[in-house]
Write a protein that binds this DNA or RNA. Sequence first.
DNA 1: TTATCACTCCCCTTTTTCAGGGATTTTTGT
DNA 2: ACAAAAATCCCTGAAAAAGGGGAGTGATAA
Lengths: 205, 205
Amino acid sequence: MKTKLFIVDDHYMVIEGIRSMLQDEPSIEWQGYANTAGACLSFLQLHVPDVILMDINLPDMSGLDLCREVLRKYPTVKVIGLSTFNQLSFISKMLDNGASGYLLKNAPKAEILTAIEVVMKRQQYLSLEASEMMKKNGEEEAPTLTRREIEVLQLIAEGYTNVEMSEKLFVSTTTIDTHRKHLLAKFEAKNTASLIRLATKMKFV
Amino acid sequence: MKTKLFIVDDHYMVIEGIRSMLQDEPSIEWQGYANTAGACLSFLQLHVPDVILMDINLPDMSGLDLCREVLRKYPTVKVIGLSTFNQLSFISKMLDNGASGYLLKNAPKAEILTAIEVVMKRQQYLSLEASEMMKKNGEEEAPTLTRREIEVLQLIAEGYTNVEMSEKLFVSTTTIDTHRKHLLAKFEAKNTASLIRLATKMKFV
DNA sequence: TTATCACTCCCCTTTTTCAGGGATTTTTGT
DNA sequence: ACAAAAATCCCTGAAAAAGGGGAGTGATAA
């Protein structure tokens, strides 16, 4: 029984690479690829693969959202996240959204095959390098922010003062101050500078 | 006369993709690939290709430095930078370091061939999407900072206050304050928050 | 039907940063 | 050797942020 494989990635080179590596594998049935989340969802209306290799960064939708969406509609599909080193902060969120595993884009052929085998057995596959990176970077996990906090955070990063924000958002300056305190607490930052640095690294800004 | 092609990228999928796309091209002679800057330099001692496709991010050295190093030793080589969208800020630096062109990793086969042709004619190849992105982001140029200013900037980003920095660097708090004023002026930032945001985007932090 | 959470608002105090100056001493490049 | 750039130090006053409290409302989920 061949494993039906589909790929979503906006880099032709990556798609070509995987296709070239796996097209002669007897255990794999290459179903095709999509460059965008939209193209992926369209394809799934016609064919449902066993495994989807999915890039974290897509032009029209984040891989996070696409993953959730796909699994909501087609719960039997196994999703394996694809990423490069510097995007590891997203991976745990990807797993939270139901992905069965993740691979780094420098994975050799054997590792890709192993990952597909493992997730087909309904187990989780985590690449070694990546899970090590997770431990290192895992200490600084991105906090959960509310809508308003994200809004304020982004205005702070743009250089707005509390007074300016209060005028822009039609609330009191003390309200902004409260949001600010919550932001500092959630990021465990002692001042605006470290807050913005952390927020930028965690892609909030 | 075939064009001798070599690739430096730490993602197997990208290497496989390019190899698969170009291996049957009559105009291209595939010379091989390297995963690291070190491996690349070793290879070049034995064979000198016509064109090198070079990723901006390598594990052991930045593509910027590798590009400069390679061109210093082998000035006849043409280097084409490879990148994804979010690394465009590096591209202009890559060109400054002597690269002949750059491609995005979602480039189709035809574009890669065009790029190789163009740089072989000693012309520069800039991918359309990327050069557009350059224009947008090109307006905010990174200012020139002194050693001390970079030092202070990084400490600010880590959350140090002026007093803490003055103790760490064994200077007066007023000195730190002066550096800080210069930083704000150079970045045209009105406060610490926007300073750190800009500095992070420009890779100072 | 209570908690819980997000959002809002207020008080007070202290610390830190910003905005203006001005000025001296090292480095560094030519 | 000399000019330019960098690094150092100082003053004052105003503005902004941080630290520490408390508290009411509305929505929503258990």
